[in-house]
């Protein structure tokens, strides 16, 4: 399989990476080289093979329903949460106005 310029543009838009014409021109053959190369995977017969779910067999651990049980994953730290924000006002993050 190979991707067209339009497809790359669409993927870039899905991934929210703005790409100018030059960047697209460069990216199309690069992606196609990689896709051609991974194409070899299709030659492997994987019928009856389960996709990998857990690399080391381990069961999903669940935690107790306790608020702020571990300080590092607790709420109530607005200053920390907003500390690195490019725009923070009145306790909120600010983004360009969204029209829904």
């Amino acid at each position: 399989m190979s991707v067209t310029r339009e497809e790359v543009a669409k993927i870039a838009s899905l991934a929210r990476i703005r790409m100018g014409e030059d960047a697209l021109d460069r990216m199309v053959p690069e992606l196609n080289n990689i896709l051609d190369w991974v194409e070899q995977l299709s030659e492997v017969d994987t019928s009856g093979v389960e996709p990998m779910t857990a690399v080391i067999s381990n069961s999903l651990r669940l935690r107790d329903d306790v608020v702020d049980a571990i300080p590092e994953t607790a709420g109530g730290r607005r200053e920390d949460v907003l500390a690195n924000a490019p725009v923070a006002e009145h306790g909120f993050f600010g983004v360009p106005k969204v029209i829904e």
């Binding site: 994953t73 607790a74 709420g75 109530g76 730290r77 607005r78 920390d80 009145h90 306790g91």
Partner: peptide, 10 residues
């Protein structure tokens, strides 16, 4: 209050 019940994970 806004963003007071937000962990680093959230």
């Amino acid at each position: 209050e806004p963003n007071t019940q937000v962990s680093l994970v959230d």
